[in-house]
């Protein structure tokens, strides 16, 4: 089971990095979203994996999953929505303003003037 989770994190990270390196805003945003999943799952997994032990206290139950990474990841998920929304807005503003959704500045020769 550990192998599945670790490889899922790897696939999400790899896919996220690849898409993040694309040249248009939309795939970059999707790439960042994939990286967000990867990071969230990674943080969650730092509490180790446990099945059938949600951290809801019950009488007579001794085994619980680690609640702290869960609490941290919960807010991270919500914040990542805010972050995605801001990035999407910036991308949209740039596209509507310049009619171009490239993430790279057009190449221009360096002027060398710093005055």
């Amino acid at each position: 089971m550990e192998l599945l989770v670790a490889s899922a994190i790897g696939v999400l990270t790899g896919g996220g990095i690849y898409l993040m390196l694309r040249l248009r805003t939309f795939p970059v945003i999707l790439g960042i979203s994939l990286l967000t999943y990867a990071v969230n799952v990674f943080l969650f997994a730092s509490g180790r994996l446990s099945i059938g032990g949600p951290p809801i206290l019950r009488d007579g139950v001794e085994f619980y999953a680690d609640p702290l990474p869960q609490a941290l990841v919960l807010t991270a998920i919500v914040i990542s929505f805010g972050m995605t929304a801001v990035v999407v807005m910036i991308a949209l503003g740039a596209y509507l303003g310049a009619d171009d959704d490239s993430v790279d500045d057009p190449a221009e020769p360096s002027t060398g003037e710093v005055k």
Partner: peptide, 25 residues
Amino acid sequence: RDAAIAVAGGLAAMGMAWHFLVREA
């Protein structure tokens, strides 16, 4: 090139996750 970076990054993330998933804190 991007695919190579992505694969390296993916393997690194997987390796790190795998590393601590099979060890106690």
